[in-house]
Amino acid sequence: MSVTTPTAGTISRPDLARLLAGPAADGRLVAPVRTAPGVVLFAPVRDPGALTLEYVNSTVSPKGCLFPQSEKILGWRGGGPKLDLYSPPEPQPLVLFGVRPCDLRAITVLEPVFGGGYPDPYWRRRRELTTVVGLGCTEPGPYCFCVAWGISPVAAPEADLMLTPVDPGYLVQSQSPKGEELLRRSGVSLQAAGTEPAVLRERRTAELTARFRRLIDPTGVEAAAERLFDHPYWRELARRCLGCGICTYVCPTCHCFNVIDRTAPDGSGGRYRCWDSCLFERFTLQASGHNPRPTRAERLRNRLLHKLSYHRSRYGLEGCTGCGRCVAACPVNIDITEVVADLKGMMT
């Protein structure tokens, strides 16, 4: 992401509501909302007062704004010898507010998957139409470990507009033309920061990094994972896995999908792309009955190694961003940070 004329400065807390008022009134704002005690989700917000700023991170990652859980990719009319295809309606422009740095990094992690040799037009269009407003963290949660992957908890280059909390308001850094546009339209003017913005961010990064309690060092885990591919460890770990797939649904970087057709009684229908999970038995089950990953041991190993090794060897990018959601959500306490420590421990 190129930063041509970086605009930086501070805004007050009331300015934040003004920044988001326009998109909210237009029905274009998606922001964190507390939907139940302990549950924060990204949802459409009509009134900036309805969004919450009191969250460590959302329960489910906001990746669905760019890669929806279920998305119509084509439609057809007719059948048999007479059939026509048509495109689904264009997605709407969005302002996605409140994305944490771990989830911002996830956009970079997913870029080569949906880009690459066969660019995915659905992802591309949503990327173009979405203005991403990042919001730096104020406190690491009990499951957070983004700093292990070299992520700053207060800033990330993927956001069009990055907000870093600095008492009493926010340091705002515009990082793209879309960010500039949002600022300009809101009429909110930035105040000169007392300290150089980069210095301010560095200071906040250092302060917050020191408060993380889940400390892991993933250096070398890729090599360990490769060496220990056949180790009984995976079978042992998978004995408690339920195969529920919650880790993949909350994950900001899981991108596996299924493609499902739905037909109306008149024969017309639509093709939908839906999130899927490599932990499900049918994920790799072939029509013949053959299954390359027949038990939970192979499936759990596949998911963990995708995060810790495969994504990196394919794209040169870490597949995990340390958001900690899979650790928090797992009903049987399978913990990727423990897996990293175990694998490295077995190598020493």
């Binding site: 493609v259 899927d276 089950l285 495969y310 060897s313 394919r314």
Partner: peptide, 18 residues
Amino acid sequence: ELKMKCGIGKCGRCNIGS
């Protein structure tokens, strides 16, 4: 011929390792 949904390296189904 593994199970595939996209054929273009995105759906994550036909991987053998990386």
